[in-house]
Amino acid sequence: MQNATSRRQLGALAAPSLIFTVGMIAFPILYTIWVSFHASSATGQLRFNGLGSYARMIGDDRFWAGIWVTFYLYFLSLSLQLFFGTWLALLLFNAKRLPGVVRSLFISPFMMPPVVAGMMWIVILDPSLGVANYLLTSVGLPPSTWLASPRWVVPTLALIDTWQWTPYVALIVLGGLQSLPPGVYEAAEIDGAPRWKKLTRITLPLLLPTLVTAMVLRSVDLLRFFDLIYITTQGGPADASLTLNIYGIRTGFEFFQLGYAGALMITLSAIVLGAVIALNRLRAAVAW
């Protein structure tokens, strides 16, 4: 029988990607775990440090500030995107016909590089000459310093990210809406239930699994939020937007504290993994 040949050929087909995975993905992750248990000296020598880096993290104010910023940005952005995304999806769903050009328009924010979104919003939100402040002041509202303000920088980043990713959430939710069985509204129609009641009692509960899927996908990106922050503020002003991810990379590549940077990155990865596991549990709970 050609079973042996068969197995050998299948192995050969999968081998290149397996080798690549081991070398470029698995080994680096293991190395980062290993290095997080070491400390680097000024000369670049690594020595065993046990749980030293993790102990240092507990006493490090910037680490806790980073945790706070990470979760503040995460919850703010996620709730804005879920709310507006669901709203936009319902509008798109009720519009019945959706010309291709409208769809292209809605995918444009999230398919452009986040770095470009940052460049664009830097100009729009410029405190003295930007068009955003011009619009605010022309309707009688006070101007904002946006990204330059320690108080407003995180909400501003959340706003930019919401602009960029709301259409993505909307298209996911729209997919969910389109796959709802058409019969679910029949009883409500006969009872003459008002529109909002159909929405809150029938549509939204049935949409929950799709909403959780959108949450998983956005959570993974939002918890390791990087590009937009790095291009606009690099964690400033006064560390007000220094997420765990930005703190980790600056520790590694500006201060070359490899062990501590490794520990920060492992911690962040554990947070992302934890969020994904928790949300997957939630998805199982709301499945129908």
Binding site: M24, I25, F27, P28, I29, Y31, T32, V35, V220, R224, F226, N245, G248, I249, G252, F253, L258, A261, G262, M265, I266, L268, S269, V272, L273, V276
Partner: peptide, 14 residues
């Protein structure tokens, strides 16, 4: 894993 892991996780060893 590659979708979930922060890019920073790979960067140091690379």
């Amino acid at each position: 894993v590659a979708r979930m892991a922060p890019g920073t996780l790979f960067l140091l060893p690379w």
